[in-house]
């Protein structure tokens, strides 16, 4: 009873308080996304923009190949599907690298004393606040063929000729990993911090080895944090632009670079760009809904 009353001291002003936020986001984000949906069904105007005529051409171009003059029987067009698939794989690999490095880090931090913990957390979050463009450029600078990394490796006699890293899938994965690593560490850290270590103790008392305890007791308990971290890395990686653009090349095209090219680049096909954006948005929404449903299932279990 008191819980309800005490938390609604501004209940009467709910609407005026929330209205500015609702209107701003509604007018400048929800309506634009709906406009984008409409644009994806319009006819393209050369050199950007659209003609207001209904057309399925954008989606048709995405999925079907009708030959050079558009009169052949439709075949599946793999170019764009492959770009989407590559983006999913790249984002998944980046997520996996983040998890492999981020989990031990998060666990290690969460088991320190409170003061040490704060310092570690601070150090992990600082790079996130550094401009993403600058971080990506720094990475590019470091791993170039003539960059410092290759220079040192050659001087140290580890390699004879520079390792070619730039413009490869690996470089893009590294860039994505570098962009979003803190997103993996922080939620896992929060989960491990809440984890009750007497469970580990009980497990050890019952003669479970350290790694068995990790696999059977710790990991299931901190699973929500791990899932949250994976979502937070996977989703922005999927639509990333800077990492594939600066660290990758023509062979590492991802969704973000494909979309950008339709508006800023030479392609200039707005309906197609809008359609690709809608498909990316749908993909992300599916991932988020999947996450939300797994969360509510978890809530039911408890």
């Amino acid at each position: 009873m008191s819980g309800l009353v005490e938390k609604s001291s501004f209940g009467g002003l709910r609407k005026p308080l929330l209205l500015p936020a609702w209107l701003t986001i509604g007018f400048f984000l929800v309506i634009p996304v709906l406009t984008m949906l409409v644009y994806s069904f319009l006819t393209k105007e050369f050199r950007g923009g659209v003609l207001w005529e209904f057309s399925l051409a954008a989606y048709d171009q995405f999925f079907f190949d009708r030959g050079l003059f558009g009169d052949e029987p439709p075949k599946i067009e793999w170019t764009y599907i492959n770009i989407f698939w590559r983006s999913i794989v790249q984002a998944a690999v980046a997520t996996l690298i983040c998890l492999v490095i981020g989990f031990p880090t998060a666990y290690f931090i969460a088991t320190r004393s409170p003061q040490t913990r704060n310092i570690w957390l601070f150090l992990i979050t600082v790079p996130y606040w550094v401009n993403l463009l600058i971080r990506t450029v720094s990475m590019k600078f470091l791993i170039r063929d003539t960059g410092p990394l290759n220079h040192w490796l050659m001087q140290a006699g580890i390699i004879d000729s520079p390792i070619h890293m730039i413009n490869t899938n690996f470089a893009v994965q590294l860039g994505l990993f570098y962009s979003y690593l803190p997103f993996m560490v922080l939620p896992i850290y929060a989960s491990v911090e809440r984890y009750n270590f007497s469970l580990s103790e009980a497990s050890a008392d019952l003669y479970a080895g350290r790694w068995t305890t990790l696999r059977r007791i710790v990991l299931p308990s901190v699973k929500p944090g791990i899932i949250a971290g994976c979502i937070l890395v996977f989703v922005p990686s999927l639509g990333a632009f800077l990492a594939p653009d600066l660290l990758g090349g023509a062979k590492t095209f991802m969704i973000g670079t494909l979309i950008e090219e339709q508006f800023k680049g030479a392609a200039g096909n707005w309906p197609f760009g809008a359609a690709a954006s809608m498909l990316l948005l749908s993909l992300v929404m599916v991932v988020l809904l999947f996450y939300a449903s797994s969360q509510s299932k978890q809530a039911l279990h408890h």
Binding site: F28, P32, T35, M36, G239, F241
Partner: peptide, 24 residues
């Protein structure tokens, strides 16, 4: 959900949608 929508929508999608909206 509405308040957090700008975080959930991928940046490139927000960029495209905003460009299209302002141009329209």
């Amino acid at each position: 959900a509405l308040l957090n929508l700008p975080i959930m929508v991928p940046e490139i999608v927000t960029a495209v949608a905003t460009l299209i909206f302002f141009s329209m």
